[in-house]
Amino acid sequence: MNTPLQNGLTLLGRLALAALFLPAGLSKISGFEGTVGYINSAGLPLASVAAVIAILIEVGGGLALITGLFTRLAALVLAGFTAIASMTFHAYWAVPAEQAFMQQLMFYKNVGIVGGLLVLAAHGAGAWALGAKRNQATA
Results as ranks from 00 to 15, higher is better:
15 L>W: 13
15 L>M: 09
15 L>C: 08
16 A>M: 12
17 L>M: 13
18 A>K: 05
18 A>F: 04
20 L>E: 06
20 L>A: 05
23 P>G: 04
23 P>T: 01
23 P>Q: 09
25 G>T: 00
27 S>L: 10
28 K>P: 00
28 K>A: 02
29 I>R: 10
29 I>H: 10
29 I>V: 14
29 I>F: 04
30 S>R: 11
31 G>L: 06
33 E>P: 02
34 G>A: 03
34 G>Y: 04
37 G>L: 02
37 G>W: 00
38 Y>I: 00
38 Y>A: 03
41 S>Y: 03
41 S>M: 03
42 A>K: 12
44 L>N: 02
45 P>Y: 03
45 P>C: 12
45 P>I: 03
46 L>P: 08
46 L>E: 11
46 L>H: 06
49 V>Q: 07
49 V>P: 00
50 A>T: 08
50 A>K: 02
50 A>W: 05
50 A>F: 08
51 A>C: 00
52 V>E: 02
55 I>D: 02
56 L>M: 09
56 L>I: 09
57 I>G: 01
58 E>G: 08
59 V>T: 05
59 V>K: 04
60 G>L: 03
61 G>H: 00
61 G>F: 01
61 G>E: 01
63 L>S: 10
63 L>R: 05
63 L>A: 13
64 A>R: 02
64 A>S: 13
66 I>M: 09
66 I>Y: 01
66 I>R: 03
66 I>C: 03
68 G>H: 07
68 G>V: 07
70 F>P: 09
71 T>S: 11
73 L>H: 10
73 L>T: 14
73 L>Q: 14
74 A>W: 08
75 A>E: 05
75 A>M: 11
76 L>K: 06
76 L>R: 06
77 V>E: 06
77 V>R: 04
78 L>M: 03
78 L>H: 01
78 L>S: 01
78 L>C: 01
79 A>H: 05
80 G>P: 04
80 G>D: 09
80 G>L: 13
81 F>N: 03
82 T>I: 13
82 T>L: 13
83 A>E: 09
83 A>M: 14
86 S>W: 13
87 M>W: 15
88 T>A: 10
89 F>Y: 07
89 F>L: 02
89 F>C: 02
90 H>Q: 08
90 H>L: 08
91 A>P: 08
92 Y>M: 06
92 Y>C: 05
93 W>F: 08
94 A>V: 04
95 V>M: 03
97 A>C: 12
98 E>N: 15
99 Q>D: 15
100 A>Q: 14
100 A>C: 11
101 F>S: 14
103 Q>C: 09
103 Q>I: 11
103 Q>F: 15
105 L>W: 11
106 M>I: 15
107 F>A: 11
107 F>T: 14
107 F>K: 09
108 Y>P: 14
108 Y>S: 15
109 K>M: 12
109 K>I: 13
